[in-house]
Design a protein around this nucleic acid. Structure first.
Lengths: 214, 214
DNA sequence: GCCGAGGGTGAGCGGGCGCTTAGCGAGCCC
DNA sequence: GGGCTCGCTAAGCGCCCGCTCACCCTCGGC
């Protein structure tokens, strides 16, 4: 039922911006390895061999192992931000936009679980500078969701006690999908996205059109 | 406002069951180190020196570095399960019990963030056998929450579309607190617990007493 | 006072890590 | 077609890892 290609590592992420081809293959191998075992448990030899190259080939395209994680993290966060911004720009009121944001964000975390895992959980393995840069992107992600919730609260379409805490909770819900989602499990990314969108609308007390009414 | 002791590593967890004293100090040092840098990035030398001992001292009390993680993980999961069971056994209907379960579970994840981080996020660093044992405990945690939600759904006190998915989402919300909670941040564990209990009651569409009515 | 047991140390082992370097071969320019 | 560039490899360096071993100190029992 899922429409995105889900070859191991391929998933929903295109990685088109990474060139040349060898650099992309290495990056893809790194994503897989980091997601499976974590950054620190992954060796450069493992990454290289997954990409069908010798250990030394990695250092032609990347200065260090950390640069790989940094690149993956930045591209991933930019993709996440783009998803939320697209959803936020769709027509309709806060209810529709929040539902669209959550369901597409969840779809990305579920369908591209391999990438999302690295992006969301390996942040602390970055050095201070890279980490600070990525944290800037995360604040933008946060602001995007908070913006929608704030607007709904102001217009009275939502009923929210604490906008900041609710924003955090909504993001928690979406991000944690990358921790537990199993591609071979009973639910498709689309189903989880729809379910979670409904749960989030309940959390913000949405009364407007699109809220779960019964 | 917080009543639990929050000395670094001490937190809400007693670790009384770990004896002798040197073994407990090592375990505590390991919890701190694993939470800060992750299991694979932590060295046995770091653990030992945090505990004020030589690197070799570790191997008097533990066979391997993994045994430390295994012990931490089991004790932590047992504590988590105990918290949920206690909450589940309090008087009142599903609404009160779910609220109590969520708020106390969140308080544990926030107040004992150091421990909770290791318990919830370092599971994959365990070997197959230890991992399987811990996964058994996790299923019990899951069952505890699902039990309350199921009961509320059956009695009509809750309005839930998908019990399994909702259970997962509730646990997600609680567990993810260990990822973002900051002891120096603006909110106490108690505040987050209360906020999240309210959000969860909304998610399950609680209509009974204790639900956020307005 | 001697002994054994148990908690602890200093030194160091084998090995695998991230990363480097010297060199090789295919393709392109002139 | 000679030479330069670029992508890549084989070999290996230096380091630090998890873990071990020989030995030591302290303390209770007799």
């Amino acid at each position: 039922m899922s429409t995105v290609e889900e070859t191991a590592g391929g998933e929903a992420q295109p990685w088109d911006e990474v060139t040349p081809d060898a650099a992309r293959r290495l990056l893809l191998a790194a994503v897989e390895a980091f997601a499976e075992r974590g950054y620190h448990a992954t060796t450069t030899r493992d990454i290289a061999s997954r990409a069908g190259m010798s250990p030394a080939a990695l250092y032609i395209h990347y200065k260090t192992k950390e640069e790989l994680l940094h690149r993956i993290s930045r591209i991933g966060h930019e993709k996440a931000l783009e998803i939320l911004r697209t959803a936020s720009r769709t027509g309709g009121g806060p209810t529709e936009r929040l539902a669209e944001a959550v369901s597409s964000f969840v779809r990305w975390h579920a369908g591209g679980r391999t990438t999302a895992r690295v992006v969301q959980y390996e942040l602390d393995s970055l050095g201070p500078d890279a980490r600070a840069e990525i944290l800037g992107l995360r604040r933008k992600v946060d602001a995007e969701v908070r913006g929608i919730i704030e607007e709904g609260a102001r217009s009275g379409e939502f009923d929210v006690i604490d906008v900041h805490a609710t924003t955090l909770a909504v993001l928690s819900l979406c991000i944690d999908v990358a921790r537990w989602f199993n591609v071979d499990g009973p639910r498709t990314p689309e189903e989880v996205g729809a379910l979670y969108a409904d749960l989030v609308l309940r959390m913000v007390g949405a009364r407007g059109p699109g809220a779960a009414q019964r």
